[in-house]
Simulated scan of single mutants.
Amino acid sequence: MATLTGSINITLAIALANVMDIGQSNYPINFGVNFPFENGSGDGQASAAWTDERTIAASGSENLDMAGVLADAFGATFSVTKIKGLLVAANANNTNDVLVGGHASAAVASFFGDATDILRVKPGGAIALIAPKAAGYAVIPTTADLIKVANSAGGTPVTYKILIIGA
């Protein structure tokens, strides 16, 4: 069985500048958060990872099952009861948005206020949901274990990359 160690890092580095009557004013913004993970299921721990690059046909959708259908990089079954990190990045060449969430009957709804809610990932954009505490985002086999990913419109397919870590 594989063990998991690593971290999720999010870094923002922006410079605001304003030309004044004499000179220029600068305000550098540096912000970062780091979420280290060790192997396990408690605070700051995860034990499974699944990642893929996928394409969805125009107006299409797919359901990603968190409880025993997907296989990890080593061919082992990916099955978690809590998600500690979900990252989705839409290809910059997409015309349509990538929609995450909103499965009708068995949604992993703990990301949202309501099971029908969705996150819209614009072309070239990304989302990251990180829950490093022991509870994570709840996954309940059979009743709340599907993450729906959909193409927002017709005409063209969408491509996205996804990473899920959990325990």
Rank of each mutant, 00 (worst) to 15 (best):
A2P: 11
A2R: 06
S7V: 11
I8R: 01
I8V: 14
N9K: 05
N9P: 01
L12C: 01
A13P: 02
A13N: 13
I14S: 03
A15E: 14
A15P: 04
A15L: 14
L16E: 12
A17P: 02
N18W: 07
N18I: 07
N18P: 00
V19T: 15
M20S: 05
M20F: 09
M20Q: 10
D21H: 11
G23V: 09
Q24M: 11
P28K: 05
G32A: 13
N34R: 13
P36A: 08
E38A: 12
E38Q: 14
N39D: 15
G40L: 11
G40H: 14
G40C: 12
S41W: 09
S41A: 11
S41K: 00
G42Q: 10
D43R: 00
A46P: 06
S47A: 10
A48C: 08
A49T: 12
W50N: 02
W50F: 11
T51A: 08
T51N: 12
D52Y: 08
E53Y: 10
R54L: 13
R54A: 06
A58D: 15
G60A: 13
D65L: 02
V69L: 01
V69A: 00
L70N: 00
L70A: 00
L70S: 01
A71N: 06
G75D: 12
G75R: 06
T77W: 04
T77G: 01
T77L: 05
F78S: 00
F78K: 01
K82W: 04
G85N: 12
G85V: 14
L86M: 04
L86D: 12
L87A: 00
V88K: 03
A89Q: 08
A89G: 07
A90G: 08
N93D: 15
N94L: 04
N94P: 06
T95M: 09
T95R: 05
V98F: 13
L99F: 10
L99C: 04
V100K: 01
G101C: 02
H103F: 12
H103V: 03
H103Q: 15
A107T: 13
V108R: 00
V108C: 01
V108K: 02
A109I: 09
A109P: 04
S110Q: 07
S110F: 02
F112T: 07
A115H: 15
A115C: 10
A115K: 09
T116M: 11
I118Q: 10
L119G: 07
V121W: 11
G125I: 08
A126C: 06
A128L: 03
L129H: 00
I130Q: 02
I130W: 05
A131V: 10
A131P: 02
K133R: 06
K133D: 14
A135C: 06
Y137S: 01
I140R: 01
T142S: 07
A144F: 04
L146I: 12
L146G: 02
I147A: 00
K148V: 04
A150F: 11
A150K: 03
N151A: 10
G154C: 00
G154L: 01
G155A: 05
P157S: 08
T159M: 05
K161T: 13
K161M: 13
I164S: 00
G166E: 13
G166L: 06
